[in-house]
Design a protein around this nucleic acid. Sequence first.
DNA 1: AATGAATGAGGATTCATTCAT
DNA 2: CATGAATGAATCCTCATTCAT
Lengths: 221, 221, 221, 221
Amino acid sequence: MSEEMEQWIQEMLRVSDADDRMTDKQIKIINAAVETFSAKGFAGSSTSEIAQKAGVAEGTIFRHYKTKKDLLISIVAPTMAKLIAPFVLKDFNKVLHSNYPNYEDFLRAVIRNRLEFVRNNLPIIKIMLHEIPFHAELQTQFKEHVGKKVFQRVKEIVEHFQKEEQIVSVPSTTVIRHAISVIIGFFLARFLLLPELDWNEEQEINYSIDFIMHGLAPRNK
Amino acid sequence: MSEEMEQWIQEMLRVSDADDRMTDKQIKIINAAVETFSAKGFAGSSTSEIAQKAGVAEGTIFRHYKTKKDLLISIVAPTMAKLIAPFVLKDFNKVLHSNYPNYEDFLRAVIRNRLEFVRNNLPIIKIMLHEIPFHAELQTQFKEHVGKKVFQRVKEIVEHFQKEEQIVSVPSTTVIRHAISVIIGFFLARFLLLPELDWNEEQEINYSIDFIMHGLAPRNK
Amino acid sequence: MSEEMEQWIQEMLRVSDADDRMTDKQIKIINAAVETFSAKGFAGSSTSEIAQKAGVAEGTIFRHYKTKKDLLISIVAPTMAKLIAPFVLKDFNKVLHSNYPNYEDFLRAVIRNRLEFVRNNLPIIKIMLHEIPFHAELQTQFKEHVGKKVFQRVKEIVEHFQKEEQIVSVPSTTVIRHAISVIIGFFLARFLLLPELDWNEEQEINYSIDFIMHGLAPRNK
Amino acid sequence: MSEEMEQWIQEMLRVSDADDRMTDKQIKIINAAVETFSAKGFAGSSTSEIAQKAGVAEGTIFRHYKTKKDLLISIVAPTMAKLIAPFVLKDFNKVLHSNYPNYEDFLRAVIRNRLEFVRNNLPIIKIMLHEIPFHAELQTQFKEHVGKKVFQRVKEIVEHFQKEEQIVSVPSTTVIRHAISVIIGFFLARFLLLPELDWNEEQEINYSIDFIMHGLAPRNK
DNA sequence: AATGAATGAGGATTCATTCAT
DNA sequence: CATGAATGAATCCTCATTCAT
């Protein structure tokens, strides 16, 4: 792997791990809330249970977070930002201007990186998945950030490689959907559907990349 | 398309549409519950709201469904069964013994058929997605039916074509995951993420099949 | 025992066993209600449970008994009447005019007879005990029948024997209370507090009569 | 009366009056609950009525008592304990080793003392009587404490006096039942059946003791 | 007579949130 | 800052009773 890319990966890691300053009790509350929301869903969790699990008084939660929903937002929003952080790095599509003969290594680096991120933030990712449909604020944030910024960046890359005839000539939205489906499908299987299996992650990543590469390869008539 | 396959598709349709006999009020309750659960989630919906929406007394709900959860189950369970019904038809993998040169038409038939089913049962499908993680009964049913029966059938087909060297030599579980990811990815985008777009469904199905076919094609070194 | 007394006992039995005419369903309802009220109390029993136990529709109960309370009254009232029936027989205090040297045999006959009655109507007796304090109608009936009629009869007898100096010269109300306490104390222990014990009823009756006789015997200074 | 006995009576009083520390609202809730349960029975009382009577929000009840039944137990259990407290004082049967020629004074002291206790706790005593049959926890406590501990103590005394031939030679269980029946019979008449009467309590106690003493006196053939 | 679906008031209990300490 | 008692609206659910069939 090129040195350039390694630097980029370091950047990606740095960006994801920025942590806000919080008091000891706040951290306990957040942890308890994450655990509870993740296990029972937002609507199925009670603030009293969270307080108990956090070892604080019921009132303490509301000193830090005006409402229960506030608590949810302040858990999900930063993680959603971190989840897509690498894609909005200003040098994300540096790959375009490098002299890579292909995008395979790049794809592999991104997958590995996000795999780690998901692994380390699994409960919050679950909360995101479950709650986005029910909370306008989260939907807005999701559509804005993921739907626009990320999509825009990825689209540029895809269309670049299409111009170079390294990717089949199919609407770029479709190309993106296919690729992302395969990757997210892997993440879901790995962490949500069959986490108990004995996964060979490197191999599966390779299979997935291989599948995507062949699926997207230009058609030779 | 062969006549045989057309018959099978008819069979698939027939199986999916069997409808239970219910009283007028029961239907109203179910419809109101589907609408509400789908919009706010199970835990976020109140029985009083459902009753009001259904135009019945709150007590009437509990005459027909012992608990609120009962109401959920009796909505989700049959639809989950219908969702996978085609896969457990005894002649589902008839394709194996036919003389198709490939499995493309078969795949297209299944996708089209399930696309229609999802379209016609969208709110319930949403409920399924949201609630399965929180209800042991639904999880059990899902793992049992989808995880075991459907997977088994599909695996047979995949391994059959692998033996005939029409599919790349990769673990069948991985093959299945890739194909399903692409299809479900399409369904999610079509109905949940970007339903407001002006979709050319036939074309997208073709792209997806094309992507899968190339992604799964045997590698020629 | 005298022949006269035996006749009286026969009369007592006859009076207690008069049974009202009821339809088959009515009998089932009453039995179910007795069972339920006795086990859970009136307020703790639901008409739906009674209907279920009786094998009739919920509405059927209300065809025969206007309200749930009606059902209670129509169970308790007749049994309360039967419970005191012997005491209001017009020849109850025939004992006064017989030439008995004492009242022992008479007391024994009454105790035995009421013991049988209680044994055969235990659940209803329980209901009476529990519900009289909470239902004005039952209280009225109880005070009227038991408190007045029975008390009047017994008082005459007691005062008769006091005049004959066979009973200690103590207020007749106190005498009656003492005797009844001992008898009812026995019934309660026998059937409610320690029903599982292996009771020698005849012997206990003798002990109780003996205790009463000595307790009430005229004091010899 | 001996000085020794007077001391014992003081001890008895002290033990009965120990009062738990409770907040102002808790006291109001308990008082309202006692009043309501006593008047309508446990099952016939609603928590909303109790809250209203106590002048607190309904939720407040459940902050202090997890369930309505909890509220009942926390009312009845301590009173049941206090009711029998004198009998389990370690010097209760001190009477055995004193040089009393008889047990009359002792019996009178106990009756007077418990009469006062019942007078001061009448509503709770009523609740006890009504609810013990319907609540396993109360039954257990009753059988354990009253049935075992009290009975054991009293039995020792009775058998002691039987050995000394001051009590008739009849099974001690029967002796106890007779004595207790007379005393409880008096209490019930005094407070529950005919509370409106103008009772001369001291005289009735004397009559009852007299009745018991004669009823239990050794038989002279 | 009998049914049982339907009712809506009322049941116990939970909840997010407030506020005096 | 933190507490936890207090709130009262809202929750799910049960109930006695009615009424069309």
